[in-house]
């Protein structure tokens, strides 16, 4: 491997790591937002209770 190849390899690796880092940060944000949105509120809990009552 020539020094140029070595240099290119390192540059590629660096940009790939950056891209993967961004994807991971994006996934963290995605799961955080999804958790907030789907977290059951009073209404959801009441509906769930009612469903349990009905099935009894």
């Amino acid at each position: 491997m020539t020094p140029e190849d070595q240099k290119q390899l390192e540059a590629r690796r660096k940009s790939r790591n950056k891209a993967l880092g961004l994807v991971l940060v994006g996934l963290v944000i995605l799961f955080f937002a999804l958790t907030i949105v789907r977290f059951p509120d009073e209404e959801d809990r009441a509906a769930y209770e009612a469903e349990l009552e009905a099935s009894r």
């Binding site: 491997m1 190849d5 290119q8 390899l9 590629r12 690796r13 940009s15 790939r16 891209a19």
Partner: peptide
């Protein structure tokens, strides 16, 4: 393929 692929290639 000696050099790891560029992220643009994955895109």
């Amino acid at each position: 393929v000696l050099i790891p692929s560029d992220w643009r290639d994955f895109l």
